[in-house]
């Protein structure tokens, strides 16, 4: 059973882009609906931040790769998503047109970027520590768990100075790797409630159809209905991503092939870790 997995925002963009008809169509939609020129990474209208550009780029590339898979007659029986991968996942499930997914991504991104005008935020990627220690580090430094990807791969989110201050503690407590990434807003934390009303206004501007392919959400691993989508789109910005739970639920649902539909292969690597850990425990 095939599953299409849609990853979240990439951390960088590739200088080399495809030049086939599908990509040209996606690039045109991205210019027209999101205001981003993918070819030179410039804004066609009001400029926004690099983070917003990466969010739009990630969604565009997911939509493009989904088209390629479908051209190869590879179709999903289930769809899963991670963080901002929800927007192309909605499009792939038939719940939202591709153009709306691009526009929605850009509008949500721009709304979040306003937080960077009055605050400074970052993400901290911690590899190698168990969850209880990472939670303790988060609490000690006043930040939040944003991604629970596997038993040893986590993302913390919060104010930049707090994220920077936890690096030394994480390394001292045995982290294998700690990396910090500046961002516009404290994504996947309760701090996003500060712009909750504005996000809600954007989300309710769109009409969401019933997913034609079952779409598993990354919070509680249930399948989204059309009625669930608006509430989920807001909640997912305030709550952590639980990828390990999603993968285990997908496996339990009978998925045998996982296609990562987007930039990079982080989700496949998380799956590999979860699988190998399960094998070690046998």
């Amino acid at each position: 059973m095939n599953c299409f997995m849609f990853p979240g925002q990439p951390l960088s963009h590739s200088g080399t882009l495809p030049d086939d008809a599908d990509f040209c169509q996606i690039a045109q939609d991205t210019r027209e609906r999101a205001g981003l020129n993918l070819n030179d990474f410039t804004w066609t209208g009001t400029p926004s931040t690099g983070s917003v550009a990466l969010q739009v780029y990630g969604v565009a590339m997911s939509l493009y790769r989904k088209r390629l898979l479908v051209r190869e007659e590879i179709r999903p029986r289930l769809i899963a998503e991670h963080s901002m991968g929800i927007y192309p996942a909605l499009a792939a499930s038939g719940a939202l047109p591709e153009g709306d997914a691009l526009e929605l991504t850009a509008r949500i991104g721009r709304c979040m970027s306003v937080m960077s005008e009055t605050g400074s935020y970052a993400l901290g990627c911690i590899v190698g520590l168990p969850g209880e220690i990472v939670i303790s580090i988060a609490e000690n430094n006043g930040v939040f768990m944003a991604n629970h990807n596997t038993s040893r791969h986590f993302l913390l989110s919060g104010e930049r100075r707090s994220i920077e201050s936890l690096e030394a503690e994480a390394l001292a407590r045995g982290a294998f790797s700690v990396k910090l990434f500046p961002c516009d807003a404290p994504l996947h934390t309760p701090m996003m409630e500060a712009i909750g009303d504005k996000l809600q206004e954007i989300i309710t501007d769109y009409r969401y159809g019933e997913p034609a392919v079952p779409l598993m959400n990354h919070i509680d691993q249930s399948f989204l209905t059309a009625a669930d989508v608006p509430d989920f789109l807001l909640r997912e910005l305030l709550l952590p991503v639980y990828w390990e739970k999603s993968y285990l639920a997908l496996r339990k649902a009978g998925v045998t092939r996982y296609h990562e539909v987007g930039v990079g292969d982080a989700l496949k690597k998380y799956n590999r870790w979860i699988e190998s850990e399960a094998a070690r425990s046998l």
Partner: peptide, 9 residues
Amino acid sequence: SIDALQLVV
């Protein structure tokens, strides 16, 4: 770093 941790194990 995801790969590196896999190699450590």
